[in-house]
């Protein structure tokens, strides 16, 4: 008699990338179409998220339907420029560069107490201003590039990099973006580089967050699906990692929502008066 034991059940982050790419390509085409757009615009940073977004946009709309912007500040890493050009070239899109230094430094000159953190937020919001203005100029819809991990952690500038109306990667963890990026042919040097917001010199995401993406994403997926801490501890994750991940999620629910309006009536928007965003009778 053979004695068999079922493998321990768990969650996998590995997806069918071909199916995901097909789905997200259709998502971009259809969601642009009903809004009356046939072109998209992406701010390319040199990182893997914007590279993957650009790759999807080119799949959906062709290179002629995609504008790519590179929006450096003088403090930005030279590697960011190199990788942004590499990415745009790989997908056959011309890269337009707009230096945000004068915008940011114009305010910084008037603000002697500006901290590096505040200046980083300023850069993100300056980029958002340029992205939306260029979008208007080209009649193109801005695409967001934020992934699920950073959305859950609130690791972005509110009303900065989270502001574009369409976000194809928003339900994919960082490690899943790496998988999709490889499938779509994003240059390996961009996929493998250490993730950074590049808002402060020398900054890396994983140092800021205090946990590795590979580990955070597994914890997040199990946490969101209702697994216990004990289950995660048995998988080899530490109490400190689990605590840190849960704390980041639960401190930032406000950041994933629209601004709070005081409710005074029984027709309050989004509370009583409920219509989906694509409702247009």
């Amino acid at each position: 008699m053979r004695i068999l034991e079922a493998p321990k059940p768990g969650e996998t982050l590995e997806l069918n990338w071909a199916l995901v790419a097909d789905f997200l390509t259709r998502f971009l085409r259809e969601e642009l179409a009903w809004r009356g757009y046939d072109k998209a615009i992406v701010a390319v940073s040199g990182g893997v998220d914007s590279a993957t977004t650009l790759a999807l946009a080119v799949r959906a709309l062709g290179p002629e339907g995609v504008h790519a912007l590179f929006l450096p500040h003088r403090q930005s890493s030279p590697l960011s420029r190199e990788h942004a050009h590499l990415v745009a070239g790989s997908f056959g899109v011309r890269l337009e560069e707009v230096d945000i230094t004068p915008m940011v430094e114009g305010y910084a000159a008037q603000t002697p107490d500006l901290t590096p953190h505040r200046k980083g937020n300023l850069m993100a919001r300056a980029r958002m201003m340029v992205l939306f203005d260029k979008a208007e100029a080209y009649r193109a819809l801005p695409l967001g590039t934020g992934n699920k991990t950073e959305r859950l952690f609130g690791y972005y500038t509110w009303h900065g990099d989270d502001s574009p109306p369409l976000n194809p990667l928003g339900d994919l963890y960082k490690t899943q973006v790496w998988g999709l990026a490889r499938y779509l042919g994003v240059p390996e040097v961009v996929v493998r580089k250490v993730p950074t917001a590049d808002l402060i010199p020398g900054q890396t995401d994983e140092e800021d967050l205090g946990v590795r993406y590979l580990r955070a994403d597994v914890i997040l997926e199990h946490y969101l699906k209702g697994y216990s801490d004990a289950y995660l501890l048995a998988l080899g994750y530490t109490e400190e990692e689990i605590r840190r991940v849960k704390e980041r999620v639960n401190r930032t629910h406000w950041k994933r929502a629209l601004p709070t309006a005081a409710l005074l009536s029984s027709t309050a928007i989004g509370e009583f008066y409920l219509r989906p965003l694509d409702y247009r009778p």
Partner: peptide, 12 residues
């Protein structure tokens, strides 16, 4: 009409 109408059901 499409599926997700929320309160728009009343109108459609």
């Amino acid at each position: 009409t499409g599926y997700f109408l929320q309160g728009g059901v009343r109108e459609l």
